[in-house]
Design a protein around this nucleic acid. Sequence first.
RNA 1: GCUGGUGUAGCUCAGCUGGUAGAGCAACGCAUUCGUAAUGCGUAGGUCACCGGUUCAAAUCCGGUCACCAGCUCCA
Length: 640
Amino acid sequence: MSVLEFPDGSSNDFPEGAVFFDVLSTLPRSVQKNAVAVKLDGDTHDLREEIDEDGSFVVITGSDSEALEVLRHSASHLMALAVKELYGDVIFGIGPAIQDGFYYDLKLDHTFTPDDLEKIEKKMEEIRKENPDFVRKTLSRDEAMEFFREENQPFKVELIEDLDAEEVTIYTLGSFTDLCAGPHVPDIRMVKAFKLLSVAGAYWRGDENREMFQRIYGTSFGSKTELEESLRRIEEAKKRDHRKLGSSMDLFNIYEEAGGGLVFWHPRGYTLRETIENYWKQKHREKGYDIIMTPHIARSDLWKQSGHYDYYRENMFVIKGDDEEEMVLKPMNCPYHILIYKRELRSYRDLPIRYAELGTVYRNERSGTLHGLLRVRGFTQDDAHIFCSPEQLDREIDKCFDLAHEILSDLGFSDYEVELSAHDPEKLDQYAGSREEWVAAENALRKAIEKRDLEYSKIEGEAVFYGPKIDLKLIDALGRGWQATTIQFDFNLPRRFDITYVNENNEKKYVYMIHRALLGSLERFIGCLTEHYAGKFPLWLAPVQVRILPVSEHQKEYAEECLAAMIKKGIRAEVDSRNEKLGYRIRAAEVDNIPYMIIVGDREIEEGMINIRSKSTGREGSLELEKFINDIVDEIEKKG
RNA sequence: GCUGGUGUAGCUCAGCUGGUAGAGCAACGCAUUCGUAAUGCGUAGGUCACCGGUUCAAAUCCGGUCACCAGCUCCA
């Protein structure tokens, strides 16, 4: 007998052999109808499962996130069944629920095209109407292996081989039986709003040396309305795509003639970039950084000494002419900064030394990974290396956080996720540097996060061999995360280059080296910024801040006068005096995401005023030119 | 790099099973001189990504290359 305690405080007991369905029948009809699965002491269970322990009992219903996961998992089984019925011999991989939907990995002779997705959807709908039972069964490990061997499902057999458990569960839906821990919906008809989205290749268990499956992605919701809402959001996100906005706003382009992953900044895009760069430089000077600039190439020997030549080779562009010494196009700035540090003997009195560079690096990323501005082959890191003593560690890390926060919030990002990558205590011998150094470094990072009450996840064993690090993921207007800031320790390069300082006891010590990039790369950051603002950049960043529209040709001269006055004050303005109606040119300015339009007609000339229309609020009325210029200069100053 | 898809005018796209290309927007010209999200008419614009093959004939079929898209992998 098991005793279940309900959320309202009441409890009830159930005889041996009872399943969770039996519990449901004691509950209101509305709950019965919408029950997807149940939770006992926090663990999710299938309704078909036997109750074998006491505990606090909750029904998962409707569209809460746990229900959604069950629903989507069941949808993936439904899809697998549909594919099996349509195409016959299918070898199945795995088919889990994921963040925004589900997928199933399938192997079959037929290669799917987008048209097939519709066909499969139709079949799924048919099956759903037939309403086959979803049956759960427990088998011993051997029975299960035998079963899947007979079914010719080698990957399922492999999965069982790697399981610890003595017993496994299988779920049968129509002619499709799958190894699956569940839970699943009690009735397949509950999967009523689904859509198949795309098909792509995926390696078995993510291993590129193993078989490739065809993966069909889909999504599913509790109701058709929610599904439509989600599809609408996907469309919205597409409209914000920085690649699309980048060309429609004429910010940048990537030219096939030049090669993939190489960004050409057009005048407007460069204006935006330059604004960010100037702001960045000013901030860094204020915070005690020395700004430097280093060459794009260097002799291979330097990269041999740094270790990149051996460990990073496949990502490096190596150049060699006839009879010439081999050179490397720099993939990182660190060795260069180290050379500058090393040029003289350093005393503890010199520290900390902070070298910052907008350093352009080139990495030969694999062709399939390139993606707009977010993944490129040539990019400019907002890089800096801080050389300091152990006593200065905490303060330097703290200052990095302050600066990152200041810059990111000025640029419009105030939310981020924090990830601390720490060492694996069991594998300490695989890391560069001493235990003391790692502990001190990780503590400095942790203290800086905790001081700011930031939530963070600490991942042990995630650190690379040369040092622990912190990454900040920016959360944009759509709630998506973007990898930007990184603060990393390096215990490797100081040893390889023997970079030291002399402490107060006249001892030579390895210097602590901190590598940090706040925006990450300008390319990636601007891509992310574009999507965050959907191209509607705030005034101080907007490539064109003001567009002046004379109502007709007669006011052209006045418009030019206004323009000259604005340009004199550093405002990025232009005149659109094309032979088109005012409404047409207003629309063009709206489409170009220009923050302010100035409209001048005979009325304005007579009154000595200008008429303002702002992108965000529409018509704003008349103002004196000088007043407007002062206002706008103020607004730019405030980074509005 | 791998799997699949795509590549036609500056942009968005049409062009069925082979018979040397079409629309809208943009550009340009003319008319219009206009008051807060698209004035009308006209003109021009394409080695159909590139290279090779099949064919009397290729944007269309086949092979290769490049690029892009969705993923996978990678991101010491």
